[in-house]
Simulated scan of single mutants.
Amino acid sequence: MGHPEPFDFKFVAVGNENYFPHHEVQYQEKYFKFYNAIKRAYPEIRIISNCDGSKMPLSHPADLFDFHIYPNNSMDMFSKY
């Protein structure tokens, strides 16, 4: 992407705001393809899932998770977390 030299790449996120409970099967099918290919070629890279792992364990392997919430107001946000 225009970078002249290799750089220290440590993390990669698989997906961005495309996980919803009613799309879990489709997300996981695609997630595993990326997860397995990345880990096979670059086992040291940490994989970030965009599923919510804050209340219960994820149903797929991930080093980290990044789940976005969009509350209606600040009181909603602080009442949930």
Rank of each mutant, 00 (worst) to 15 (best):
M1S: 15
M1C: 14
G2R: 05
H3G: 05
H3N: 14
H3F: 14
P4Q: 10
P4I: 11
E5C: 08
E5K: 13
P6C: 08
F11D: 04
F11P: 00
V12K: 00
V12W: 10
A13F: 10
A13G: 15
V14A: 00
N16P: 06
N16Y: 14
E17Y: 11
P21E: 15
P21H: 13
H23N: 15
E24H: 11
Q26V: 14
Y27D: 10
Y27E: 04
Y27N: 07
E29Y: 00
F32G: 01
F32L: 14
K33S: 03
I38S: 06
K39H: 11
K39V: 02
A41Q: 14
A41E: 12
P43K: 10
E44H: 08
I45T: 06
R46I: 02
I47H: 01
I47V: 04
I48K: 04
I48T: 03
S49V: 09
D52M: 09
G53H: 09
S54K: 03
S54P: 05
K55Q: 12
K55I: 00
S59I: 14
S59D: 13
S59L: 12
H60M: 15
P61L: 05
A62P: 03
A62G: 00
D63L: 02
L64N: 05
L64I: 06
D66Y: 07
F67N: 07
H68K: 11
P71F: 02
N72V: 05
N73I: 04
M77T: 00
M77N: 09
S79V: 00
K80M: 03
Y81G: 04
Y81H: 02
